[in-house]
Nucleic acid binder design. Structure first.
Lengths: 160, 160
DNA sequence: CTCATTTGTTATGCGCCATAACGTTAAGCG
DNA sequence: CGCTTAACGTTATGGCGCATAACAAATGAG
């Protein structure tokens, strides 16, 4: 019987393998938690919406176009909180796919009036159902009241 | 009294200028609210931390290195929830700036043991103060209880 | 008409994330 | 022991979201 093994395998000394790292410096930071939650949200969105060829930005365009026919790009970019330069690229792709139309404003030839095509409306119908499932999965561990409080709190953070 | 101007300037017909777009399709969506809040958080972080040469990712490395000296890169990447391949780039820059040291593990020559340098610790001291101000600005419209509830809700969303 | 503004486009870069391919070192196993 | 598999890290590449700057075209004000 070996004398020397008084504490067999009980890790009394220095760890030699998997001591879990101390994450306490990060886990109460709002920025870190926002990043993780947004990453989860993006993954859920991608999982369910990429079969429809939609990213969050593209979906936002379609939704706001349905609610605001003949909107100008500047106004749409403002509503989406993105820069007009980035919207240009989004719109070019969506138009090339036949989901929307950019028509010149007769009264202001600088402006493009945006409108969904029939194909765009058809896609949006399917997309709304998929998007509802995304929201459901994301908030399935929250009560409706907690979900509402979360959204309200996020809105206040974003408002500054 | 002019007869013809029955409804002077009341926009009874088509709008000719700034009808505010209908954002209702987006404003209750968790994904959209997460994006806006995270964008605000990133802007606040950048405003106060970029003078110190820090991004969120770099700050996370420094914080976890202080709490976990001699951690391996794989464990650090897991704790930060980033991929080891992306951590490599972060660490190379931080090491080139003299903020941390990558020492070969004597008992496992594959692994790098990470440790802050004196310069890294000095920077981190200043960075913590600035980061506290970031958190303060972000949550200044929330009560402490609301802030805690927000972080808890975000953690549950991220947990799936 | 001239000049400043509005509207949209293009180009470029950063931060973060992911995957794939690779070299090196260590560990498992016959 | 030698072979195979796994762990650890690096490099390269691409996507997404965001930002700025420089630009062209059309409009409106003086």
């Amino acid at each position: 019987m070996p004398i020397a093994r008084r504490q067999p395998r009980d890790r009394a000394g220095l760890s030699d393998a998997a001591a879990p790292p101390d994450m306490s410096p990060l886990d109460q930071k709002l920025g870190f938690r926002l990043r993780l939650a947004q990453q989860t949200a993006f993954e859920a969105f991608h999982r369910l919406m990429s079969p429809l060829g939609l990213t969050p930005g593209r979906m936002g365009v379609l939704l706001l176009l349905e609610a605001n026919p003949d909107i100008r790009q500047t106004a749409l970019a403002e509503a989406l909180r993105i820069k007009p330069s980035n919207l240009t690229v989004l719109l070019a792709a969506l138009e090339a796919e036949g989901l929307l139309r950019r028509a010149e404003d007769a009264g202001n030839r600088r402006a493009n009036l945006l409108r969904l095509t029939a194909a765009g409306r058809a896609l949006l119908t399917r997309a709304k159902a998929a998007e509802a499932e995304v929201e459901r999965q994301l908030t399935e561990s929250l009560t409706p009241a907690e979900r509402a409080a979360l959204i309200a709190a996020l809105a206040r953070v974003a408002a500054g």
